[in-house]
Amino acid sequence: MSLVEIRGLSKVFQKGGETVKPLEDVDLDIERGEFVSLMGPSGTGKSTLLNLVAGIDRPSAGSIRVGETEVTKLSRAKLADWRAGHLGYIFQTHNLIPVLTAYENIELPLFLLPLSRTERQKRVNIALDAVGLVDRAYHYPRQLSGGQEQRVGIARAIVANPQVIVADEPTGSLDADTGSQIRSLLCQLNEELGMTLLLVTHDREVASLAGRQLRLDHGKIVEASRVRVANSTVGG
């Protein structure tokens, strides 16, 4: 059984008196440990799909199941509970809480889980180590570079050990060198930690890291190529 199972997913909304259909009857399966990238021109609904999977937007039709959870049937409060334990979200613009240190930003999602202080400390330190920011733990976001901020954002997304991580243009606001570091980090998350990633990007180079590259075209998903699932090549 796939980890993420999307069936007949559609999204329709009104914009400036016009009916917009960014997603139309989309079907998609993502396996556990798979790294999937989603490309397409601006406004084609990539982020909409990501938000629907994350349960922060509601579909007009269709269903999304992640693990055992039928995401589209959950209330807003239940969705928040579900995200706390099962989903990591990497934003394009980091979205760190400015008044909290890197450590506190990463610890924040763990407050929602039944963990002791020691366990929280352990997990935050592991996440900081994974993104190479142990020496920046007590820096505030304003004291970090863009790349470091994004790494804190990634650490925050993985700290609760979620079933799936969604990333919305994670290198979109970074320069080339920093973007390259983040790309390596994402590969590392998938290959070494076996995390399931669904990533939206404009960047072909970032998309090419994924085992499966998808394109959104007129509200439909088109499979561009399939390379590998974490730790094993499955096709080309």
Binding site: A77, A84, A160
Partner: peptide, 15 residues
């Protein structure tokens, strides 16, 4: 507004 939305994305209930 954005920060409160981010908190909810991280799993904090709206209430």
């Amino acid at each position: 507004i954005k920060e409160h939305a981010v908190l909810q994305v991280l799993g904090v209930r709206p209430t």
